[in-house]
Structures are given as structure tokens and as C-alpha cells.
Design a protein around this nucleic acid. Sequence first.
DNA 1: GCGCGAACCGGATAGCTTTCCGTTACCGGG
DNA 2: CCCGGTAACGGAAAGCTATCCGGTTCGCGC
Lengths: 218, 218
Amino acid sequence: MDVPQPQGAHLPLASGPDAEGSGRAGRTGRAERADAADNRRRIMEAAARIVAEKGPGALTMNAVAHETGMGVGTVYRRFGDVAQLLFALLDEREKRFQEAFMTGPPPLGPDAPPLERLRAFLHALADRVTGQLDMMLAAETAAPSARYSSGAYATMHTHVTVLVTRVRPESDAALLAHMLLAPFMPSLTHHLTRDGGRTVDEIKAATDDLLLGIAHPR
Amino acid sequence: MDVPQPQGAHLPLASGPDAEGSGRAGRTGRAERADAADNRRRIMEAAARIVAEKGPGALTMNAVAHETGMGVGTVYRRFGDVAQLLFALLDEREKRFQEAFMTGPPPLGPDAPPLERLRAFLHALADRVTGQLDMMLAAETAAPSARYSSGAYATMHTHVTVLVTRVRPESDAALLAHMLLAPFMPSLTHHLTRDGGRTVDEIKAATDDLLLGIAHPR
DNA sequence: GCGCGAACCGGATAGCTTTCCGTTACCGGG
DNA sequence: CCCGGTAACGGAAAGCTATCCGGTTCGCGC
């Protein structure tokens, strides 16, 4: 069956010569072959080019295959579908964001009280989603459920879970974390900002209201 | 251009011989022609049959066309895409739910304090989503953004907005309403219940935690 | 009844997705 | 250096989506 492995270095946050971070087959195989890794890179480049030139809507597996000169099957072998390709592209741009909230300065990073960090994180998330809205929307449109199996989501969820646990140890933090992330789905953000004429600041304000429940002691 | 009009009688909640409720072109046209209305009905019937027999995944425009003996173009003329067809099917099953929270007995219906109603509504929503998960997931997969332009969502959003306004008049109730509905997206519910092994009761409990912020006076 | 324009029907078409499998290219061990 | 097993490549094929447009049908107004 041979499930494709999009590969996005996430939690490790390694920043070496990048020689690593791409190309293992989970725990169950050996390293990705050199030509395969090369194709993966060429595919991502082509995909980024297409997105930059014609927008995320023009990103099709066919177009990528044509752009790289490969066969369609090859593209599908590396990335199972358009959604995975888009998530891989997003993952690359996500690294800076992850560093910010995992190791950066307060209020986003460590050295700040949990509740404040949580608030800062959600505000930053609001900015990030509106900033990358087109690509995120395309990714969600291609496969809504893929969101939850992406490395980026896992990282954010873990982060929020930890913070919620600190603030309200008695709650079901993992579940609450999902619910706090849900309002930032690309489709809703799109609806609010593009159709509904809402601003990011309004969204942040409403987020604060939502946080009151977690914030309040009793 | 002639945008298709899925037609789901929503707010009116009319329950007459059902002779009405299907078939106008918004405010800008005249009634749907008899043969067209007839085709709409036949399409919905065929769609319902396909879903019942082979699951929502098997619902394609092609399949419906074949099942009804119509051309594909006709199906597309009535319902712009699979998502609209699915939403139309869902709308039919939604009526009972709408009656429950709009005119039914407490705690869901009127005659209950707003906060209690809000809580009851979200709990009922959790049940409803898990109950119809397959179809809702299919609809979301077909077009994630369609959710927000569906009549069912509009109704729910209005309802929640009203309740939130009663509880916290100074807040941006409309925005908060969106955020309170977001955790019940089919894709998240699917992730939680099917992949995450969560139960509806756990989800309800977490919902209560989320509501604390709205609930609390200060 | 009747005529006419709008609305509708249906199938052909183009492009995309995803699978499948024969062929080809890598690469670790001998 | 060569060899064999394995992974990867590539393109054909099947099915779906969505659009388009010539021919047909409805139903309003007379």
C-alpha cells in the first residue's frame, strides 16, 4: 500500500543544515531513496511556484506533474493528494510561528503566565490564519479532516492543552483545546472576514470573551 | 447565469400540506416551473435513496442523474453541486430539530432562562451532529464553506446570537455565536469521536466549561 | 385555444483525481 | 565491481465534476 509521507519537521524544530528532517518512512522502513527525496523537493518547489503565480486554486496534481515534467503517478506517490501537498507547503511557513510560541519571547513564549500566553497565542493564531487565508482555505477545501492529522495542528493542540492544564487543572484540557482552536478554522475565518466584513481585532476581542470561562477561577 | 436555489424551508417552519416551501427564485424571479419542481423532488428522492443504500460517499451527481434517468446538466441546474444536494437533504431532517429549539418545551424552547437554553441547545447540537455525522461530514467534505451559507446554519446562528445577547448584552454576540458553533463542525466531531474515542457526554461537559465565560456575570 | 419568450433538458466536452502495473533506477552486500 | 531485491517512475484508464449550448417544453397573456 505504501502510504506517502509528506514530511514536515515539526516538533523537533531542528535547524541544522536541514540535511535531515525530510525522508524517513516512519518507524517501519528505511530512508527515502535519493531520487525520491529529490523529486519531493522539486515537487514542493513547483507547487510553491504555481501557488505564487496563479493562486492556491490552480494547484492541481496534474499541473505539478506537468510543471516538473514528471508523471502524475510520481506526484501522487510523494503526496497522496492536493491537501497533503498544501499542508506540506504550509508546514514550511509554519516553522517561524512555532518557534515564536515555543521558544520565543513573552507573551507568546515561555517566561509568561499561562493565561496570558494562551491569549497571546490565540491572537497570534488569528493573525496567522488571516495572513495565510487563501492557502489554508484551499487546504481545508481539499480535505477538511486532514487538518487534524497535520503536524501543525498537533503542535498547536499540544501547546494549548498544556496551557489550559496550567490554568484549569481540573478540566478536560485536551478537549477544551480543540474547542478553542475550532473558531480559527479557515472556512469560518473566511466567512467572517470576507463575507461578514469582520476585522481581526474584532475576532481577537471575541476570543477574549471566550477565554473568560477558562480564565475565571471558579 | 441562473444560480440554482436549493430550497429548504427554514425559518417559516410552515407545516401545511407542504405544497409550498419549495420553489421560488428568491425575490428576483417568479415561481419555479412545474416540471422543474418535479425534477427537484425526484432528484432529492433519488439522492436520499442512494445515501440510504450506499452511504453518503456514493452520492455523486452522475449517480443521481443515472438513477433518475435525467441528464447530468439537469441535476446541476437544480443543485449547483454535491454539497448543495447534501445540504438540502440535511435541511429536510433538520426541521424537527429547529422546531424543538424554537417552539418546543423547555429547556430547549422558549419558557426557559437564556443561559439554560443556550446550554441545552449546544448539548442538543452535539447529539444532532453525532447522529447525522456521516452525511454532515460528506457535506463538509464536498464544500467546507457552504456550511455558512446554508439555511440551517443561519437559523442556528441567529438563535445563539439572540441567547448570547440576552446573557451578555455588552458582548459581540454575533461573533461569539459563530465561535460557540465552531466546535461542532462535523470534521472536528468526527476527529473527536471516531479517531479520538471521545464520547458525546465528554463533549457536552467541555461545552459547559466553554460556556462559563459567557455565563459568568463579570 | 394560441403564440412566444423564458426556462428547462440533456448529452457532449474538457479537465481533474486516483489507481494500477509494467518498466526502470537505486543501492547495500558479496 | 557486479547483482538482486526493492522502491520508484510514468502514463494509461476509469470515473467524477462542472460547463456549455442546441433543441424542447412550459405557461402567461391574449
